[in-house]
Amino acid sequence: MAALWLALAGCAQTTGDAMENTTAPIRVLASQDQCGGLNHPAARWIASASEWRQLHAQVNNQWMNPPPPPAVDFSRDGVLVVAMGQRSSGGYGLTLAEPSASVRDGVLTVRVDWREAAPGRYQTQALTNPCLLLKLPAVEFTRIQVVDQAGRVRLEGSR
């Protein structure tokens, strides 16, 4: 029964102290190169259904027929918004690099591939504002950091 509860809770696993060495599986809810209104780099934690509906509507306001917000049970999960901010062209994007996040010393760390427009290549000339919408178990943490493929901290936020 304990194992089943762990699975239902999103498989958060603690490898040591409750506030340290925790890993949490991540599910990608959306990955878009156009995220309406997310014009500044940010890492933001969404903890309520109403906030999630509002954000999802804003992020998809470029669509005439936006998709419905994926279901999230906020009694056990939350949504991490990773926004690259507005960019002047295509060629930018975010992809989840590791399927789980780690929590150490109260810091939730998510690893992503942070793609910039490749130098020397022509790009589409529509503005973009890439983002990732990630569902994670509502593990305990106080700060967020988003690390790129080179180990560089790209974004920081707080809960």
Binding site: A30, Q32, Q34, G36, N61, Q62, W63, M64, N65, P67, S89, T124, Q125, A126, L127
Partner: peptide, 28 residues
């Protein structure tokens, strides 16, 4: 609606092609 340029659009969200309409902005 925001004052972007409306046109035909496509998404591959969820792995499936979805044809729709969207607003974009830019000299593109």
């Amino acid at each position: 609606r925001k004052d972007g340029v409306w046109s035909t659009a496509t998404s591959n969200r969820g792995g499936a092609v979805v044809n729709d309409y969207s607003l974009n902005k830019g000299t593109s």
